[in-house]
C-alpha cells in the first residue's frame, strides 16, 4: 500500500482555511462557554432563588443531550418555529451553550470551595458583591478550576468537528470534502487527526504553564 502525501500539499489552502475556522469557532465558543458558565455559577451561588430552577434546567438539558442533537434542533427545527439562524451562528452558540453547561458545574464547585466566612468578612468591610468576587473568590478558585477548565476547552476544541454536519467549512468539513473528491481516506483523515492532536497538545501545554505560574504566584503557607 502506498500513501500519497502530495495530496495534502494540493489541498493546503483549503486545509489552512479550515484550520483557521476551527480555531475561530473553538475560541469563540469557548469564550461564550466560559462567560455563560461563570455567570450561571455566580447566579446559582449568589443570585435570586427564582433563577435556580431555570439554571438547573439549562445545565441538565445541555449536559444531558448530545451536542449533535442540540445542533439539529436549532438548525433544522428552528425554521419550523420561525427561528432561522445561519449555520455559523448555530454552531458557535451551540458550542457556547453546550460548554457553558459544563463550565457552570466547574465554577460552581470552585465557588463552593471558598469558606463562607471569607465572604462574610468582605461583606462586613463593605465590599460590593463584584469586589468580593473579583478580589476574594476569583484569585482563589483559579488554581482549583484550571485543570477541569482546560479539560473542557479541549472537549470544545474536538467537538468543533461535529459542526461539519451543519456544512460549516471548518477543518473536518474540508477534509471530508477532500476525501470525496480524491477517494483517498487514510492520508487526509490521518492528517486531520494529527492537526487536532497538535492543537490539543498546545492547549494542554498552555494549561500546564498557566497552572505552574498561578501556583507559584498564589503559593501560600
Amino acid at each position: 500500500m502506498s500513501l500519497d502525501w502530495s495530496l495534502l500539499a494540493e489541498y493546503a489552502p483549503a486545509l489552512a482555511h479550515g484550520t483557521l475556522l476551527t480555531i475561530v469557532l473553538w475560541l469563540g465558543g469557548s469564550v461564550l462557554a466560559l462567560g455563560i458558565g461563570f455567570a450561571m455559577a455566580l447566579l446559582l451561588a449568589a443570585g435570586p432563588d427564582f433563577l435556580r430552577a431555570p439554571i438547573r434546567c439549562y445545565v441538565e438539558f445541555f449536559r444531558g443531550t448530545p451536542l449533535l442533537v442540540q445542533l439539529f434542533l436549532a438548525y433544522a427545527g428552528g425554521p419550523q418555529i420561525g427561528i432561522t439562524l445561519s449555520a455559523f451562528t448555530v454552531g458557535l452558540w451551540g458550542l457556547g451553550l453546550y460548554g457553558g453547561a459544563y463550565f457552570t458545574e466547574i465554577f460552581r464547585a470552585g465557588f463552593a470551595a471558598i469558606p463562607p466566612g471569607q465572604l462574610d468578612a468582605a461583606r462586613s468591610f463593605g465590599f460590593s458583591r463584584a469586589q468580593s468576587v473579583r478580589h476574594v473568590v476569583v484569585p482563589q478558585i483559579m488554581v482549583l478550576v484550571l485543570p477541569p477548565a482546560v479539560n473542557m476547552l479541549i472537549v470544545i476544541l474536538k467537538d468543533t468537528a461535529v459542526l461539519s454536519i451543519l456544512t460549516i467549512p471548518e477543518l473536518t468539513f474540508q477534509v471530508t470534502g477532500m476525501t470525496l473528491e480524491t477517494f483517498a481516506f487514510v492520508e487526509p483523515y490521518l492528517a486531520l487527526a494529527v492537526l487536532y492532536w497538535a492543537l490539543v497538545e498546545l492547549t494542554a501545554l498552555g494549561g500546564r504553564v498557566t497552572e505552574a505560574r498561578l501556583t507559584h504566584r498564589l503559593a501560600w503557607g
Binding site: 469558606p115 471569607q118 468578612a121 462586613s124 468591610f125 478580589h135 484569585p139
Partner: peptide, 26 residues
C-alpha cells in the same frame, strides 16, 4: 468593623494586603 471567631482572613493575600484591602477597595 468585625472580628470573627474563625478570623476569616483572606488566605491568598499577605498580612499587609489583608489589612490594606478594605482601605483601598472600600
Amino acid at each position: 468593623a468585625m472580628v470573627f471567631q474563625q478570623f476569616n482572613l483572606w488566605p491568598h493575600m499577605s498580612v499587609l494586603q489583608n489589612v490594606m484591602q478594605p482601605l483601598v477597595l472600600v
